[in-house]
Design a protein around this nucleic acid. Structure first.
Length: 423
DNA sequence: TCTGGGGTCCTAGGACCC
DNA sequence: TCTGGGGTCCTAGGACCC
């Protein structure tokens, strides 16, 4: 019998801020997305006020003021660093683990002889003590059931952060009955609506749905999800992560713009970031897509998305080539018109490891004349902070830059911002 | 005034080939 | 009166995830 665990950090981004500012404990706190757009993390107290995931800030600003909610811009440097520490603690204690997202980790608990609930409590206590973050763990015979157990553990005070379905198969049926289909991992709004039309509203009913109908209506992924609810594993642990297939850098603009120069400026900056990311993972890209889009929420304004795809041959991670190619593609796709662009992005695809680039039969291996320069740029930026060395037009103060009005210090990743303790 | 960013997988349909 | 059948590859878009 297989046993999986799912550990996640409670309200991850908010909890990270609380590690460095204990005065936030017990108070309503939210963290906003890039551009200070939406609430992407809420403390329990903020959830209790009715603030939902992804609520646009401008719609809840009054509520926040009236209830003295602490509102923070996101600080990804901080979250990534605490995530790395958490995963390191887990790796030290769990037999096998797969990081699934910035705040979640699947565990393989198959064959463990200890009482699972007791062991999970021990791991939670260690993460709390060593990193300072509160966590929840659910277990089950499949990943989908471990997810489901995790969610229920969060809802129950008595569970104290752990629900062990793997060790208690007799609890599974009740757990399923208490889970709405929309809360099942892999079932989104579109599928939930189709299920509701058949009066399938909770996970227990979903478990008994007809396979042929499921395959036809929800596709192969939907059928797999239901198999997992039945206790039949369809997703294995992926301890060695697959090589990434694409890399995107995109941003919403601080101000809308219809000017090619502004969008080009943004694309140049994105190209620099994306190329550096590829180099840090020793990958090169064989294709590139640029796009610019208007605000999809403004149905009163004309809508337009410009896109351009180009192949990169030979595949590249050199910032200069990626910038040149992306800018040329953007200029070709550009249309002047009444458009107010509020977002642009760059997608690098067909990624291949640097040393596995396909070459044609007759040419000698290409010497890469820019490797030295790119290495120098990367190490400058690593040592002195992002943006120290950058290319051409890429500027830090352009009008397209995202808003970020409620910044907090990089407590753990910049020497100048490390907190000072006085005793 | 003000609505995130970065991914994956699956599917349907078109182009193309024999 | 009336245009095969079967296969592959590629792409765009949908659905979903955190």
């Amino acid at each position: 019998m297989t046993a999986f665990g799912l550990l996640d950090v409670n309200n991850m981004f908010v909890s990270c801020h609380r590690v460095f500012d204990p005065s936030l404990a017990g108070r309503p706190v939210i963290v906003l997305s890039s551009n200070d757009g939406c609430a992407v993390a809420r403390s329990d107290e903020a959830k209790a006020l009715g603030i939902r995931m992804a609520d646009p800030y401008f719609k809840i600003a009054k509520l926040c003021q009236a209830n003295r909610v602490t509102v923070l811009s996101s600080n990804f440097g901080l979250y990534c660093d605490l995530s790395t520490r958490t995963m390191a603690v887990i790796a030290e204690h769990a037999p096998a683990a797969e990081q699934y997202s910035i705040d979640e980790c699947f565990l393989d608990l198959t064959g463990m002889v200890e009482d699972l609930a007791v062991w999970c409590q021990g791991l939670r206590a260690t993460v709390q003590r060593w990193v300072g973050l509160p966590t929840t763990i659910g277990t089950g015979p499949t990943r989908t059931l471990a997810k489901l157990a995790n969610r229920l553990a969060k809802k129950s005070k008595r569970a104290e952060g752990v629900l062990d379905l793997a060790g208690h198969p007799e609890w599974v049926e009740t757990a399923l009955a208490r889970t709405p289909v929309l809360e099942v991992w892999g079932i989104g709004k579109a599928s939930a609506a189709k299920l509701a039309a058949r009066d399938i509203t909770d996970a227990l009913r979903l478990r008994h749905a007809d396979d042929r109908w499921l395959r036809q209506q929800l596709g192969i992924s939907g059928l797999r999800t239901v198999q997992e609810l039945r206790g039949i594993p369809c997703h294995d642990l992926e301890i060695i992560p697959d090589q990434r297939q694409s890399c995107t850098v995109s941003r919403s603009f601080g101000q809308p713009t219809g000017r090619l120069e502004d969008v080009r400026d943004a694309v140049v900056a994105f190209a620099g970031k994306a190329a550096a990311k590829l180099r840090s993972e020793k990958l090169v890209a064989g294709a590139l897509t640029v796009y610019a889009a208007t605000n999809r929420f403004r149905s009163d304004l004309p809508q337009r998305t410009l896109t351009a795809c180009v192949t990169l041959y030979p595949a590249a991670s050199d910032t200069r080539r990626i910038v040149q190619t992306a800018v040329a593609a953007l200029e070709r796709a550009w249309e002047s018109g009444p458009w107010a662009f509020t977002k642009a992005g760059l997608l690098l695809a067909d990624l291949v490891a640097e040393d596995a680039v396909p070459r044609d039969l007759f040419s000698p291996p290409p010497a890469d004349p820019s490797a030295g320069l790119m290495q120098a740029v990367d190490s400058l930026n690593h040592r002195f902070g992002r943006g120290t060395a950058r290319f051409g037009l890429a500027s830090r103060t352009a009008s397209w830059q995202a808003r970020q009005d409620r910044k907090t210090p990089h407590f753990t990743s910049r020497w100048s911002e490390i907190p000072v303790a006085t005793a």
